[in-house]
Design a protein around this nucleic acid. Structure first.
Length: 470
RNA sequence: GGCGACGUACCCAAGUGGUUAAGGGGGAGGUCUGCAAAACCUCUAUGCAUCGGUUCGAAUCCGAUCGUCGCCUCCA
């Protein structure tokens, strides 16, 4: 196991050595459930998914925690506007998020903690910050982190705290903060806002503190990997890092991973600008979820991903290439001897695939190796050098790689209706009788039902045609 | 203004000092096929934003210029 990852904090690639032998603990910043996540959000979740899948493929135990932020300003405002509770609003969009995630084959995280279910952990953490004088109360019952008490502040984002531009987006002091750069750990009660009665008094948690409290609750005070998109580096992760280490005195995270943004029409996809494409909308337009997943994971996580509609079509075609190979292997029958070169081909492909992903999850060379293997196997199918047993070996090898990628065809795809089975049988019979016009007619009819029929040396072969276009 | 990422073919995208610049998509031609489809074969960047420099050798290192994007307390 020699996975190397580029850590945001050190700026260096570092080898993953789990704090607990054989067990990798990962925390990913998840969605704030005030509306539907867009495909840019899912890029950051799916890059974490790829990491988790790869570690498990490599035989490591992984505990993956992804938070659900179910209380914040936007949820409160949105719920008020719709005259529902924040709980109802959060439930609705959490369900939607989980449905989209499942469609995109995101591995279900082991824990999906909610902020509102961790108020005791949050307040205990804040209390210890108060105790250590890293935090202070203001008159309205709010509690702020004192940046001046933490010299390392700004290291993650490589920002000089002195240089933060006051006035542009740093609000002038409305709560009586000691320093305008100090951030809220706890927000005092306000009319019309939900509050919790706690050992700190009335109020609700700030944004950053929930991730510190929930990650440490479920993974311990020090864990291996923390993921998110680059826009979370500052202030969210900077604040998390400061308050966590200030509270425990222990190193918080071994490796910070941040993915670049997905761009559309030349700029960052963001809910605030409306420059967005949602998973549900795309699937509703008939886009294949597999193709969308492929598009979202096929570019290295630290490179900007430029989303264009054409990339879905290209991804769909690439997937059909894989599907066609698997269908050919499933139908392949040859009594000859085993292919003497197959073991080397598989070993070389596996080695290349792992070498690429070990290097900071370089997905592009991994896919290149996979498609090289696809071409080579197709050659051997054409040349009939594989045995029937070889075909099964290749199939299970490809399925094994797909544990990492998650782009293979749906396993239970044999739901042929009796009508379709009858059409296939009729066509096979027509071909046996060399009745070409009838067999061509049946091929067209099957195509209209989304079933592609191909004639091969191994007989008539069929597979489903997925919709990849909008 | 500060910090950072990036610019490779028609599109997406690897490669970061040394054989013919991966892979996917698209396009052209061919083989196979009753016809198709799929598959396979051949072709599709003497050149990597531009200009200089270092070097025996540069897409890769250095400098400058042009352009794109992001962060600098809403953010995946």
């Amino acid at each position: 196991m020699t996975l190397r990852l580029l850590d945001t904090l050190s700026g260096q690639q570092r080898e993953l050595v789990p704090l607990e032998t054989g067990h990798v603990r990962i925390y990913s910043c998840g969605p704030t459930v005030y509306g539907p996540a867009h495909i840019g959000n899912f890029r950051s979740f799916l890059f974490a998914d790829l990491l988790v899948r790869y570690l498990r493929y490599r035989g490591l135990r992984v505990t993956w925690v992804m938070n659900i932020t179910d209380i914040d300003d936007k949820i409160i405002r949105g719920a008020a506007a719709q005259e529902i509770t924040i709980g109802e609003m959060a439930k609705h969009w959490t369900d939607r998020f989980l449905a989209d995630a499942a469609a995109l084959r995101m591995t279900p995280p082991d824990v999906l903690p909610r902020a509102t279910e961790h108020i005791p952990e949050i307040t205990t953490l804040i209390a210890s910050l108060l105790e250590r004088d890293h935090a202070y109360r203001t008159e309205d019952g709010s509690i702020f982190f004192r940046i001046a008490s933490w010299p390392a502040y700004g290291r993650l984002a490589r920002l000089d705290p002195e240089q933060l531009r006051v006035g542009e987006r740093v609000e002038a002091d409305e709560y009586g903060k000691d320093d305008v750069r100090d951030f809220a750990l706890w927000k005092g009660p306000k009319l019309g806002e939900p509050t919790f009665s706690t050992l700190l008094g009335e109020g609700r948690p700030g944004w950053h503190i929930e991730c510190s409290a929930m990650s440490m609750k479920h993974l311990g005070p020090s864990f291996d990997i923390h993921t998110g998109a680059v826009d979370l580096i500052f202030p969210h992760h900077e604040d998390e890092l400061a308050q966590s280490e200030a509270a425990t005195g222990l190193p918080f995270v071994q490796t910070w991973l941040h993915c670049a943004h997905l761009q559309m029409a030349g700029s960052k996809m963001a809910k605030s600008t409306g420059n967005i494409e949602r998973v549900g909308d795309l699937l509703g337009r008939g886009i294949s979820a597999r193709a969308l997943r492929y598009v979202l994971i096929a570019v290295h996580y630290r490179a900007p991903l430029n989303y264009v509609d054409a990339s879905l079509v290209a991804a769909g075609s690439a997937l059909e290439r894989l599907d066609a190979l698997l269908a050919a292997l499933a139908a392949y029958r040859e009594d000859g001897p085993d292919d003497s070169g197959l073991a080397d081909l598989i070993a070389g492909t596996r080695a290349g695939f792992e070498r690429a992903l070990d290097d900071d999850l370089k997905i592009a060379p991994a896919l290149a190796v996979l498609f090289d293997c696809v071409r080579e196997v197709n050659r051997r199918i054409d040349a009939r050098t594989l045995s029937t047993a070889d075909a099964e070996i290749v199939t299970s090898f490809l399925h094994n790689l797909d544990r990492v990628l998650g782009i293979g065809p749906d396993p239970v795809d044999d739901g042929l209706t009796p009508d379709m089975e009858a059409l296939l049988e009729a066509r096979a019979a027509a071909r046996t009788g060399r009745n070409w016009s009838e067999s061509d007619r049946l091929r067209d009819e099957l195509a209209q039902h989304g079933i592609v029929v191909e004639d091969t040396r191994d007989g008539q072969r069929w597979r489903r045609l997925e919709e990849h276009h909008g």
